[in-house]
């Protein structure tokens, strides 16, 4: 489903040029649960920005279901993002002045869905993440774990092909982290949603079916992990 070939990324800041990603080659199949592990500054965020259609400035080829993403423009990315990918961020990134239901409904609004459809679907996903009855509350009144569930609900509301979670447990305690990881696993199993988790936490990485390491912009597959998981 996702095929990255020889991806290179560098950016220029002032007089200096930084080479962030070096010859990244990565293939992800539908239904995989992948973790990308790396220290901060290793280029993992840059990589998922490219995978998640946030960044169109890169060298190399990126095929998504045979669509040449590297040839797409920024304008085409919006609807691509809207229909294909859901984002879960470390600090939840909910809009603070609107209710939970409205936060979750946003992607559907931008997709141009009908009101009745939106209402039904929002109730459905909020129930799926265990937040039934929280529709009218504001994000600030929820705990961190609950906010991350809202964020996940928002990410899956459009039935995306894959989820990108950037340090989804980074702001949560270990107990809540477990719950969130369990939720990801369930979504992966029940809906066959591809999940890509970016983390620096080995405990989180260990729970994925497949693990890749990124160090100084170079990707290495953790073969032992795959074997230990029986894949």
């Amino acid at each position: 489903m996702i095929e990255l070939k020889n991806i290179n990324k560098s950016y220029i800041q002032g007089p200096n040029s930084y080479h962030i990603l070096h010859d990244i080659n990565l293939k992800i199949e539908q239904g995989e649960f992948l973790a990308i592990m790396g220290q901060s500054g290793s280029g993992k965020s840059t990589l998922i920005n490219i995978i998640g259609f946030l960044d169109d400035q890169f060298e190399g080829t990126y095929y998504y279901y045979d669509h040449p993403i590297h040839e797409y423009t920024r304008a085409q990315f919006s609807s691509l993002r809207n229909r294909n990918v859901g984002f879960v961020f470390q600090n939840f990134k909910l809009i603070q002045n609107v209710s939970i239901a409205e936060n979750v409904a946003l992607p559907l609004l931008y997709a141009g869905e009908k009101r009745a459809v939106i209402k039904e679907r929002v109730a459905q996903v909020l129930e799926a993440v265990g937040l039934k009855g929280y529709e009218t509350q504001l994000p600030k009144n929820l705990s961190g774990g609950q906010q991350q569930r809202v964020s996940i609900a928002r990410a899956i509301v459009t039935r995306p092909k894959f989820l990108i979670a950037d340090e989804p447990t980074g702001a949560l305690d270990s107990e809540t982290s477990k719950e969130i990881m369990a939720l990801f696993k369930r979504l992966n199993k029940e809906n066959n949603t591809t999940i890509i988790i970016v983390t620096h936490d080995p405990n989180v990485g260990a729970q994925a079916d497949r693990l890749v390491h990124i160090l100084d912009g170079r990707l290495t597959e953790d073969q032992t992990h795959r074997q230990s998981k029986g894949g």
């Binding site: 946030l54 919006s78 609807s79 993002r81 809207n82 984002f87 809009i95 946003l106 931008y110 928002r154």
Partner: peptide
């Protein structure tokens, strides 16, 4: 800025 980023990330077009 954050709100704008969120909206763009979940599929809003710059026109939206």
């Amino acid at each position: 800025t954050q709100e704008i980023g969120i909206r763009l990330a979940i599929g809003a077009t710059p026109r939206n």
